[in-house]
Design a protein around this nucleic acid. Sequence first.
DNA 1: TTATCATATGAGATTTGATATCAATTGAAT
DNA 2: ATTCAATTGATATCAAATCTCATATGATAA
Lengths: 159, 159
Amino acid sequence: MEERVKQIKQQLSAHNYKLTPQREATVRVLLENEEDHLSAEDVYLLVKEKAPEIGLATVYRTLELLSDLTIIHKLNFGDGVTRYEFRAEGAEHHHHHLICLNCGAVDEIIDDWLGPIEKRVEKEFDFQIIDHRLTFHGICHRCKDQVKDPGKLVGSKVT
Amino acid sequence: MEERVKQIKQQLSAHNYKLTPQREATVRVLLENEEDHLSAEDVYLLVKEKAPEIGLATVYRTLELLSDLTIIHKLNFGDGVTRYEFRAEGAEHHHHHLICLNCGAVDEIIDDWLGPIEKRVEKEFDFQIIDHRLTFHGICHRCKDQVKDPGKLVGSKVT
DNA sequence: TTATCATATGAGATTTGATATCAATTGAAT
DNA sequence: ATTCAATTGATATCAAATCTCATATGATAA
């Protein structure tokens, strides 16, 4: 934890940014909730618990800054809010997500299985891939017993 | 064209909805711009040209209705607006998108290449897939000559 | 035709997520 | 201590989307 904060501090300094108390509080919240996909509002409320004087705009600015430096990654699961997660260290692409249409849980696939498909895209479409996003929508293992008609779940969801 | 309108009319009646003049105008705009990925605002402005009295809320309601009936599909390319496209007829899953980080163009991959990966997900994660979304972000063939440092393009973009 | 009634609509208010503005504060380097 | 750029917090603003509600529409029954 401490060394991750330190590492981020170095990444900031490398670009002439400082790790201010507000930024540090925000980073710590992100680290403490690394398994979640927090929205800016989520982060704001959590940071406020340890640093009540922080402003919402500062949280947004910090998230934007961390995102610019590719320390974290902006995600959009179609629920109207931008979410944030740490970039897998060293990983060129971020991982994939499994979104349960029944309970809303977001699980992750750590592996990147798209290698062969990317090669095909680059070749057939002359498209140089920088990043990708793969999301599966369906029923997670926790819900499979209580959902009888999955067809009902499809509909107006943004994907 | 006419028969597609007729077909949609039937899909609506099947669920006790009527194809009102406003809904028909909206559907026609969507059909006439099938190759694009229009936002609600785009649709609104286009519909207004042929039916100036229509209200924005009605367009939103119509898009939501068509989306509920899975006649169209909501898309989110991370630019802050929801976009819409017709569902491929009969296709279980919609196709994939190539988004150029330089010019913003959205191209499509008609094939569904995820079969083997989906099998693996269903098996390894006990996750029943209903739909998926796959998007590649990178440099399209039209831009590849004018972009020297693709690394610069990565950053705070929502993906 | 006329009355009835559920559905659909338009105008505008409201909500919500996110960004911009700007005066005040901080803190590092003189 | 002084200076000066970076940062912050409060708030205004913006844009997308939704909600409210009075009105309009249209099918059906008398």
